[in-house]
Design a protein around this nucleic acid. Structure first.
Lengths: 216, 216
DNA sequence: GCGGCTACTACCGAAACAGGTAGTTTTTCG
DNA sequence: CGAAAAACTACCTGTTTCGGTAGTAGCCGC
């Protein structure tokens, strides 16, 4: 392991573990250490101690149980990723479809593994995450894909949507009017209707709603 | 497979294909028809004809080449998904990491497959997409995960971020001041600084930038 | 201890916006 | 065809925002 050379990570992948179950933790450590190209860098039974150590001596990859006593894995992801953005974090879970997995991915985790995955799958996920992938089940992938898809049906008319798009670009009534070749008053009219339909009362509120609900 | 019972779709999965290469299209059709639990419902050489037929007689799953003569697969996804939101669309591609794949996923595709995938992988993807998954490579998954993560570093101070959050909720200067127990003028001051840092000139533009760049 | 950053307060004038009312024309669809 | 929806124009009034200038105060690091 720790060979020096230059290059950021042509060499051994250092893996750390955060897992409260001793048996699982030890088994993973042994598996990783027995594999060429990776080494178990450190192990922790809880998030708090992991956070402290990891900021001093960061590994390349961190595998973290999503359900931990004390600070949850989700919270841990946020803290560790803030302190050490370079670490790739893989969440470990027993549930296939867990809201927590989804949350931790959006907070900074890069992939996730089921605890009872085959050794081969575990090792593949570690390499995968290090070479720019996000290992995860297709069920989780679906939820992520859906979450950033455009709304299928909007209450707005075509023209109103057009106006809303311009609003989101920060244009004034006057500029939008010029862009769409109608008068400023017409834009005013459309925007009043947009406000009514979206139940908002200002440009910024409309923009926030449009972007959050992916109306545009 | 085809047991009937109740349930919404215990029976055969109807698959349609859009692929301009005759050989690939025929090979896929044969593979699908030879597999228990699915049937090849219809095939098309281009998007235009697929769109017409599919709106009359929709399949369960549509496999679509991402690069087609005439209308591109990406455009096709958008049109078909708008007309028939119930169809699960799997994109076919030869490139592993293609911007087009990413685009089509955000426009309504549910998964994607490499054209040279093993037959088993193809059949698995079809079943997968039908049972609520999004089959895709971990490289694509990573790009999607990253695209909705919060910005790691914001140019804004803590206070400014706080103000920006309130802006995104559509509050006025006065309301934000009341919320944060400072004067309206102070909010005015913070917002001027936010505008400078984000290079914007209005509330709505700031909100748009904040939400798009995930500063909050 | 001093400069730099952050947080806060204040005043001004021009511009933009929000909400209301009151119309006309065009498109869409039963 | 005729009703309904969408697109368009206009005016008015009070409120909010934007950009500029100007000053106070606390905290941190060199």
């Amino acid at each position: 392991m720790t060979n020096d050379e230059a290059g950021e990570r042509t060499d051994t992948i250092r893996v750390s573990l955060v897992e409260d179950d001793d048996e699982i933790r030890d088994a993973l450590a042994i598996l990783i250490d027995a594999t060429e190209g990776m080494t178990c860098h450190s192990t922790f039974g809880d998030c708090e101690s992991a956070i402290e150590s990891v900021s001093k001596d960061p590994p390349d990859v961190l595998m973290m149980d999503i359900e931990l006593p004390g600070m949850s894995g989700v919270e841990g992801v946020q803290k560790i990723k803030t302190a050490q953005p370079g670490i790739d974090i893989i969440m470990l879970t027993i549930h296939k479809d867990d809201d927590l997995v989804f949350k931790s991915l959006s907070l900074g985790a890069t992939g996730y593994l089921l605890k009872d995955s085959q050794p081969d799958d575990i090792l593949r996920a570690i390499r995968d995450v290090r070479s720019g992938g996000s290992p995860m089940s297709s069920q989780i992938a679906r939820r992520i894909v859906v979450s950033f898809r455009k709304a299928e049906e909007s209450p707005l008319t075509k023209r109103e949507t057009e106006v809303l798009e311009k609003l989101c670009e920060g244009h004034s009534y006057k500029m939008i009017g010029a862009d769409l070749f109608v008068s400023e008053e017409t834009i005013h009219f459309h925007i009043k209707n947009i406000y009514q339909k979206l139940q908002v009362h200002s440009k910024s509120e409309a923009v926030a709603k449009a972007l959050r609900d992916r109306l545009i």
